[in-house]
Simulated scan of single mutants.
Amino acid sequence: MAKKLALKNGKFALCALTAAGSLTCIQPASALEWSDTSIGYRYGTKFAEPYVGDGISKSIFNLTHASGYKYGTNYLNVDLLQSDSKDHNAQEAYVVYRHTLDAGKVIDKDLGVGPVRGFGLTAGFDWNTKNDPGYASKKRMLVVGPTLMMDVPGFLNISLLMLWESNQPVGVSSRYHFEAHPMLNAAWGIPIASTGLSFEGYINYIAAKGANEFGGPTSAELNIDAMLMYDLGTRLHIGKNTLRAGVEYQYWRNKFGNPHSVPGSLAKTPMVRVEYHF
């Protein structure tokens, strides 16, 4: 039964990846000004899951694509997560897609002012499926909102996004829609001089989203995920940033909107991470 469910989830993940990939191809490949695709692996032993607890080990494989074209950028990330027995050996697929339309590029005018390089509009979605027996998340979420693109080495984007989220976990007969709620997001990738190191990550502050699927309260959540990555590609003479390795740390309070009184709602997770870019 578990194998059938895992296969079913895998098919869903493939469908989501195909759909998300098609969105990145709205403009012809020849129109791309830059593109970066990578596969990666990260591992940690201090993950937490609401109502399950903490101290969970997870292996996470990811496919990430980022690209820029005349009018903006695309970002796609697919995580495939494998938990240990503390989380029922659960398997999960989580897909994030974002498109940012650069207003200055659209009207062909420099809109930079002070520390702000430009202004944009970001839209996209989150999608997941998980086969744990307790909750079995099937999250669907649409996002849209304005973005400030800061004038820094690399990039720093700050967005205020409206979220429309729904789920249909175990025990819920039809898809449940949470109240629309805002998220303040910052995402960055900043090289550290000429050291070969890069400081990267994101911060999400998400407002409470009303009652949950079972009528209980939700709380505002804070998710900070930061990493320090080193360019091994240059050191090994296989191409700049082709191979990167580093450390990552995630702090997630009120995970998925669960109040702090819920066991497993607070995660403090160090990880090791490696990526191959092509």
Rank of each mutant, 00 (worst) to 15 (best):
E92K: 11
N74G: 02
V78I: 14
G104T: 08
W188M: 07
T18W: 07
E165P: 01
M227H: 03
L7V: 06
N185E: 15
L236E: 00
M1H: 12
S30R: 09
V247A: 13
F47C: 01
D84R: 01
G44D: 06
W188P: 01
T147Y: 03
S194G: 07
Y249I: 06
S159C: 11
W188E: 05
V272P: 02
N254E: 13
T269S: 14
N89Q: 07
L5W: 13
N241G: 02
R175Y: 02
D102V: 03
E248Y: 05
I203D: 10
I206N: 04
L63K: 03
A66Y: 06
V272E: 04
S174D: 15
L76V: 14
A187M: 05
W188T: 05
P191V: 08
P169K: 01
L161S: 09
S166P: 06
G68M: 03
K240H: 12
K4Y: 12
K4M: 11
H99C: 08
P259D: 11
N77Q: 11
A103L: 15
V247L: 13
I190L: 08
F256G: 04
Y135D: 09
F256T: 05
A16Y: 07
F199V: 08
P169M: 05
N9P: 04
G134F: 13
G53Y: 05
A245Q: 00
A187F: 03
R42C: 04
G104Y: 12
N9A: 08
L163M: 13
D36I: 13
K4Q: 14
R253A: 10
T18Y: 06
S35P: 02
A19E: 10
H237F: 03
A211N: 11
L184I: 15
K240T: 10
A267G: 12
F119D: 04
M150D: 05
T45A: 08
L197P: 02
G68L: 02
M149F: 04
W188Q: 00
S85A: 09
M227K: 10
T24I: 07
T24E: 06
E165F: 08
A136H: 09
L7P: 00
H237R: 11
Q91L: 04
I190R: 03
S22M: 10
A93G: 13
P28C: 02
I60L: 13
Q27K: 08
V274C: 00
A220C: 07
T100D: 09
Q250N: 13
T218V: 08
V143C: 05
E213N: 08
